[in-house]
Design a protein around this nucleic acid. Sequence first.
DNA 1: TAATAACACGAACATCCGTTCTGTGTCAAG
DNA 2: CTTGACACAGAACGGATGTTCGTGTTATTA
Lengths: 247, 247
Amino acid sequence: MARRRRKELSDRQIRILEVLGTFQSKFGYPPSIREICDKANISSTSVVNYYLDQLEEMGYIERDEGVSRGIRLLKPAGSLAGQFQGAVRSATQTAQNVGRAIGEMLQVPLMGRIVAGAPIPVPPSDFSYFDAESMVDVASSLLPSSEKGTNLFALEVQGDSMIDAMVYDGDIVIMKPANEARNGEMVAVWLKDRDETTLKYFYLEKGRVRLQPANRTMQPIYIDDPSIVEIQGKVIMVIRQVHGMVV
Amino acid sequence: MARRRRKELSDRQIRILEVLGTFQSKFGYPPSIREICDKANISSTSVVNYYLDQLEEMGYIERDEGVSRGIRLLKPAGSLAGQFQGAVRSATQTAQNVGRAIGEMLQVPLMGRIVAGAPIPVPPSDFSYFDAESMVDVASSLLPSSEKGTNLFALEVQGDSMIDAMVYDGDIVIMKPANEARNGEMVAVWLKDRDETTLKYFYLEKGRVRLQPANRTMQPIYIDDPSIVEIQGKVIMVIRQVHGMVV
DNA sequence: TAATAACACGAACATCCGTTCTGTGTCAAG
DNA sequence: CTTGACACAGAACGGATGTTCGTGTTATTA
């Protein structure tokens, strides 16, 4: 279990942690020791090195020996930004309590939109993610571990046509390329006879396909000919950024 | 003859961009030029430098002259976005993310569950993070910049009672503590007369409160006495992890 | 075919940067 | 007072790193 730690952080330790976070978010790379000197008003590199060793010992940061700017901030960033002692104290406790490295993040390419009237844009196998319009950052801790390796992609939902899948206009769906599905998985399917894309839970039952809306109050679709149902991908996650709604 | 074809990235340019992304997410800081040499199978530092200059010219990256590892990976869509496909513009806007500080993540405490029959557990002001059941990692690039500093918290939705807010059993809602709301914001409210928690879009109209379901097919609730409506927080984001559904 | 631009390589160089060593001052315990 | 742990400063060393230069190669163009 987590051991209780008596010691609190000194002013300079806190200052250095702040500098690490600020610098990283400002420049995109960690500061050098001499740059920490400047920002933290410390006149000697050895002193900064001295405290960096302490902070690593305490688990706040991780250092790569001999590597310039080889510092990783392990605690959640931004949380101890400029408040007073109390705020810093609780942030301190947080970091100690958490005590683990910040999780990895997956960058998922946003391939386009998903609409009812067209098949979804699926990345080709030789896809280089730099062709994507944009990237969506997803914490890999929120993904099933089995899906992390695969080439996920993201789509923005347009219109209310996916409403019976509990997916709304503006939502972002994280998808995994797939041509077939197991029963109970949510898939994006292209219904050839209707020229229509939809999100449904998939079931194959005695040669017949049942497409079940996530909204249980709605009725399923039954399709006798499975070849009409073209699976385009499995839905892994739905993200909705809620902003003001003008009605 | 059309000598000017569409700008495409060479193999080595793509490879270098991939290395930049991979290395950054793996080590937390950008690679040195020599490290790019290794990862991209290029034998000379000058070649890497040559391509880095090109990539900066094209707007894919940003370099800080003379500083080690002074490379920022920018988003690829930015520079060429104006030319084609206005169709995907809205998608780009919705999920627009960063450039700098790739890999920043917010750890949001999961405070408990939100159910219809009880007020939501809001973290007290002196909240120490010890009471949290666990943490939810959220990519800060997905959050509105105005909300990043505040003390967000997360709740897991239990039951289908929030279904008219397009929020489903098992969803995770990211919330911001609030006692009041502006028109059009989605809030968690405690209705005193009904002993009920619900998620709705909030409107105050001539002394009367209108609570609008996100699902536009459903009717709003009108409440003449605003004191009955107790706002408990604003909804910032909804995350749904889709897994197999057993029906 | 010749000329030119784009691509590639390796070496050399001046900084940048992490690390280490020495020294100074403070403060509390013995 | 002595001792030792601690905080801090400055300097110096060596490796890491960005930059530049000269040259060779390949592809494109006139």
